[in-house]
Design a protein around this nucleic acid. Structure first.
Lengths: 257, 257
DNA sequence: CAGTGGTCTAGACCACGAC
DNA sequence: TCGTGGTCTAGACCACTGT
């Protein structure tokens, strides 16, 4: 054993090696974006087996400190710039200016926005959707499944559900719902919006989500379920969102009374 | 190779085994809380090496589907009941009823609340704290570091910072700040609260956080930074919170205007 | 092509929990 | 004590990236 690892310590060797590499990253000795020594170099340096080095690197990857690229090397993760969702994201003034929320946001961030629309069409409401929209399970709803990208990098998967009676025959059923987005069309249909509720949580992504968001292993997702209510407090839309946690900080404001 | 795994497939064997086990979990063939077959049983069943089985199980653990207990076995994770933070968490009516936010919450959940106070005393503001409290970096602040538990299970780590001029000589500097909590004492000091902002994000825990919250490997944390402002919009407190993501759903309400 | 990370084997020994 | 998961070795071969 060459340097830094104590084979008789209680702490497993692979964790000691991870500690040492983590130290190098945190002190900037290996800067963000730089490559770690290759596995074989680390085998030589620490005098351990290939598998042990891989365990150490696996640990750093699960901590989100490093990303491996097959055939190229293991690199120190450079944290991408963070997007901030303001609490006025759904303010009427943006809708009236003809901007959907994500466009208003992208403009503020000077990022190139893109939306991949996966599916727009009728589906039947499952238990969760039905409960939140206060309709019967199995009722027809309009589903809009899409992926948002910023400067080409996927940031967010979103699915909206709108009661079919409200959506049918309107531009909501089109790929592009027009200026101001779906919320503007809901107001066009005479349902003035009153409030939104949002439920935020976090978890590890499913394999599908990790692929669609191009997430590195060990990156969690933020999940957000938003329900829009009209001024009579009837739910008119719900939106289920899965976000790459690294790209987002969600901002909220609460009154003290 | 016994069943289910195709050694010539593109998909690595360990992933195929993880797929098969995931299927058993998702279909309920192995119910939440139940034990998976032991590693040696799986070695026999799939006809692969020990290390390959461990890779498969590692994958399930990183997805949060299974937890390993040394010497006992690997168990299907049973999702714990979820706590919900209402948006009226900091309403004046709770404060006036003499309840700190977490107590009002625990009461609603019928859970046994506990707080471990790690430290209460003066510290100097770092860049982030100073910026949010609009004070000079290095200024003296009161820090209150604590851990919240619900029915004995740790759920949340929180650190509050209060400008020293506001806190000194008040019960805020005591372990127990009295009925209604720190926010009630801030109002006692003549700074009526006007609003709160909250910033929510998610990430993987540091090793320290994982230990203090007794997190299973592969469980992310929600982080929340709250700043309290008085009616003159001066910041009076900030609170940095790290929560076990499994235990929390954060609820917010947004106006449409 | 050489060098990188990714998968897999066969075996050894250790540490923990329950009986 | 026995069965469980955890660590580690030494070596093989594969898949991807760059030149």
């Amino acid at each position: 054993m060459a340097r830094g690892v104590d084979p008789v310590s209680d702490r497993p060797v692979y964790k000691q090696i991870a500690d040492e590499l983590r130290r190098r990253i945190e002190t900037g000795r290996i800067a963000p974006g730089e490559r770690l020594p290759s596995e074989s170099a680390l085998v030589a340096e620490f005098g351990v087996a290939h598998g042990t080095i891989r365990q150490a690197i696996q640990l750093l990857r699960s901590e989100g400190l490093a990303v491996a690229e097959h055939g190229r090397g293991v690199f120190v993760r450079n944290r991408p710039p963070i997007r901030r969702l303001a609490h006025d994201r759904f303010s009427r003034k943006h809708r009236e200016a003809g901007k959907a929320a994500y466009l208003a946001e992208a403009e503020r961030e000077n990022a190139q926005p893109r939306v991949d629309v996966y599916f727009v069409g009728p589906e039947t409401a499952d238990t969760d959707v039905a409960q939140r929209l206060k309709i019967r399970k199995g009722s027809k709803v309009l589903a809009r499944r899409r992926r948002y990208l910023s400067d080409g990098e996927p940031t967010e998967l979103a699915t909206s559900f709108i009661p079919w009676d409200l959506a049918k025959g309107t531009p909501m059923t089109e790929i592009n719902p027009g200026p101001g987005g779906v919320y503007a069309r809901i107001e066009d249909a005479g349902r003035r919006l009153g409030r939104f509720t949002e439920e935020v949580s976090a978890r590890m992504p499913t394999p599908d989500e990790a692929r669609a968001l191009r997430l590195a292993a060990g990156t969690p997702v933020l999940t957000l379920v938003r329900v829009a209510y009209d001024v009579e407090d009837q739910p008119v839309e719900m939106c289920d969102t899965v976000m790459s946690a690294e790209h987002f900080v969600l901002n909220y404001e609460l009154p003290a009374d």
